[in-house]
Computed example of a mutant assay.
Amino acid sequence: MNRRRTSPSTRRRGWTLIEMVLVVTATSVLSALGISVIMLLMRMEQTGTIALARQRAASRLALQLQADGHEATSVELVNDDVAPTRVKLTLPGGQNITWSSDDDTITRTVSDGDSKPRHSVFQFPDGSARWTLADDARHLRLHLSSDTSAATKTEPASTVPFETTIDVNLGRLADLGRHLRPVSPTPPESAGQEE
């Protein structure tokens, strides 16, 4: 009958199974939320980086195209297939500058006859370019746009569409009173007739 009595202070205390399950569940939920937030932040950072790169390329392209257009003494809009894809500018001194658009790239090629042509490339992922010449023949327009339905490995599907129009004042041509003419790959039907 000698039973030992243990006092509450010396009794062994441990974690019950329910307490352990609650701790593991809470840790799992917090980890899942944390991972989701990190993934969302990474996607937003990637989208912002792509948008910034596009905007910087568009700004550089606009400055260069406006400078070239202002100094041009002649302009030819070259139609390939359906839409114009190239613009040929002639500057004083015989220097030729060709702007061409192909898929997601716009290329500026400078040639002056004596030296090797120099190229500048402007990248617009999943972009398209459309060249137009205003009715008054004093403004050249380049319309850049992107299609988010065709997302690539370099660009997430959640990217905001990119669209901008660069309006180039053909200042020297307007001053000189020169006439701008679009050039097509096929000769016009009425080429032999005089007006």
Rank of each mutant, 00 (worst) to 15 (best):
residue 4 R to F: 11
residue 6 T to M: 12
residue 6 T to C: 14
residue 6 T to A: 14
residue 8 P to Y: 01
residue 8 P to L: 12
residue 10 T to W: 08
residue 12 R to H: 13
residue 14 G to D: 09
residue 15 W to N: 07
residue 15 W to Q: 11
residue 15 W to V: 10
residue 17 L to Y: 03
residue 17 L to H: 07
residue 17 L to C: 00
residue 18 I to M: 07
residue 20 M to K: 00
residue 20 M to I: 15
residue 21 V to G: 03
residue 22 L to P: 09
residue 22 L to W: 14
residue 22 L to T: 15
residue 25 T to G: 15
residue 26 A to W: 05
residue 26 A to I: 15
residue 27 T to R: 02
residue 30 L to M: 04
residue 32 A to S: 12
residue 33 L to N: 06
residue 36 S to W: 11
residue 36 S to C: 11
residue 36 S to E: 05
residue 37 V to T: 10
residue 38 I to N: 12
residue 39 M to R: 15
residue 40 L to H: 06
residue 41 L to V: 01
residue 42 M to I: 02
residue 43 R to M: 03
residue 47 T to M: 08
residue 49 T to W: 08
residue 49 T to F: 13
residue 54 R to M: 08
residue 55 Q to S: 14
residue 57 A to K: 00
residue 58 A to C: 06
residue 60 R to Q: 12
residue 66 Q to P: 03
residue 67 A to E: 14
residue 70 H to C: 07
residue 71 E to M: 15
residue 73 T to A: 07
residue 73 T to M: 10
residue 74 S to K: 10
residue 75 V to P: 03
residue 75 V to H: 06
residue 75 V to S: 01
residue 78 V to P: 09
residue 78 V to F: 12
residue 80 D to G: 09
residue 82 V to K: 08
residue 84 P to F: 00
residue 85 T to G: 01
residue 87 V to C: 04
residue 87 V to Y: 01
residue 90 T to W: 15
residue 90 T to S: 13
residue 95 Q to Y: 03
residue 95 Q to K: 12
residue 97 I to F: 07
residue 98 T to P: 02
residue 99 W to S: 00
residue 101 S to E: 00
residue 101 S to P: 02
residue 104 D to Q: 13
residue 105 T to W: 06
residue 106 I to M: 14
residue 106 I to W: 00
residue 107 T to L: 02
residue 108 R to I: 10
residue 112 D to A: 11
residue 112 D to Y: 09
residue 112 D to F: 14
residue 113 G to F: 09
residue 114 D to Y: 09
residue 114 D to V: 11
residue 116 K to R: 15
residue 116 K to Q: 06
residue 117 P to W: 04
residue 118 R to H: 13
residue 118 R to Y: 03
residue 118 R to A: 13
residue 119 H to R: 07
residue 121 V to C: 15
residue 123 Q to H: 12
residue 124 F to I: 01
residue 125 P to E: 07
residue 126 D to S: 13
residue 127 G to C: 07
residue 127 G to Q: 03
residue 127 G to D: 04
residue 128 S to Y: 04
residue 128 S to I: 10
residue 129 A to R: 00
residue 131 W to M: 00
residue 132 T to A: 07
residue 133 L to H: 01
residue 134 A to W: 04
residue 134 A to C: 02
residue 141 R to H: 12
residue 143 H to N: 03
residue 144 L to A: 00
residue 145 S to F: 02
residue 146 S to Q: 08
residue 147 D to G: 00
residue 147 D to K: 05
residue 148 T to W: 00
residue 151 A to Y: 09
residue 151 A to P: 00
residue 151 A to N: 03
residue 152 T to L: 06
residue 153 K to N: 05
residue 158 S to W: 12
residue 158 S to Q: 10
residue 158 S to P: 05
residue 163 E to Q: 15
residue 163 E to N: 06
residue 164 T to W: 02
residue 169 N to P: 13
residue 169 N to D: 07
residue 170 L to G: 04
residue 171 G to R: 13
residue 173 L to A: 09
residue 173 L to S: 09
residue 174 A to V: 05
residue 174 A to P: 06
residue 175 D to L: 14
residue 175 D to H: 12
residue 178 R to H: 13
residue 179 H to T: 13
residue 179 H to E: 06
residue 185 P to Q: 06
residue 185 P to I: 10
residue 186 T to V: 11
residue 187 P to V: 08
residue 187 P to I: 12
residue 191 A to W: 14
residue 192 G to L: 13
residue 192 G to I: 08
residue 194 E to A: 14
residue 194 E to D: 11
